Amino acid sequence: MLRIGHRGAKGHVAENTLASFQKALDLGVDMIELDVHRCASGEIIVLHDETLDRTTSGSGKVTDLTLSQLKMVSIEVEHQVPTLTEVLDLIHRKCVVNIELKGANTAKGTLDILATYIGEKGWQPTDFILSSFDWLALEEVHQLNPNIPIGVLTATDIDLAIGFAKFSKAVAIHPYYHLLTTETVAKMRENQFKIFPWTVNEPEDITFVKSLAVDGIISDYPERV
């Protein structure tokens, strides 16, 4: 069962920072989950929210700010907003990277970066999985590069996710763990999808989810899995 670090190791270090990703690697994760947006100057940056307000010293929408402006804000004083390329250089194929497409117009820019790492730096398509709640973005991924694995995120409906996963040739479904039952897991299994539920933190919840024999667990505390 894969141990998947949520936004790095969010339970230990500020989320989606290089230090958080390094902590996840130090904990021996099999996969790291992170979130991306496209900023005003075109770069793909790693941040969960559409705005800076919750997690940084700054404010405003990511899409209105250039990379140089984003680099001027801090996260818990000591960290910066990283670019996707900075994160991939840090991870350096030590684990699989689950990139969640959060903002608009992130699919092509992300795929362009992955193409460079695959073509020039020895990475493989299976070193990545692109996931999103924005299923149109996942459809775009499939159309632009069907070799990159896709994971369908859902917080509400397993059956709809299965239907779209079939359509988009996804390899996995990433459900909110409260949707998991013996029956819903069986449905996903019948359709040969891997199952990566999120975000499972409490020991009793981890024990329950593990009992369903999912393929991996996304957690702020991946060492608990």
Score class of each variant (00 low, 15 high):
111 L>V: 10
208 F>H: 01
80 Q>N: 12
26 D>T: 14
222 P>N: 06
7 R>F: 08
184 T>F: 09
73 V>D: 09
2 L>A: 05
220 D>S: 06
160 L>W: 02
123 W>I: 10
195 I>S: 03
101 L>P: 04
51 T>A: 11
57 S>V: 04
55 T>M: 10
189 R>E: 15
131 S>P: 06
159 D>I: 08
147 N>Y: 09
213 A>F: 08
208 F>D: 03
13 V>F: 02
198 W>E: 09
98 N>S: 15
87 V>H: 04
204 E>L: 08
51 T>W: 02
174 H>F: 06
224 R>L: 12
51 T>M: 11
141 V>S: 04
19 A>E: 15
189 R>M: 07
141 V>F: 01
126 T>H: 12
156 T>D: 14
83 T>A: 07
32 I>P: 00
72 M>P: 00
51 T>G: 13
32 I>L: 13
68 S>P: 00
137 A>D: 05
217 I>R: 06
30 D>P: 00
208 F>C: 00
147 N>Q: 12
225 V>L: 07
211 S>T: 08
115 A>V: 02
8 G>V: 06
194 K>I: 05
145 N>I: 01
165 A>P: 02
131 S>F: 11
19 A>P: 05
103 G>N: 15
6 H>W: 13
18 L>Q: 14
189 R>D: 07
102 K>M: 14
186 A>K: 14
156 T>F: 08
121 K>G: 02
217 I>K: 08
15 E>N: 10
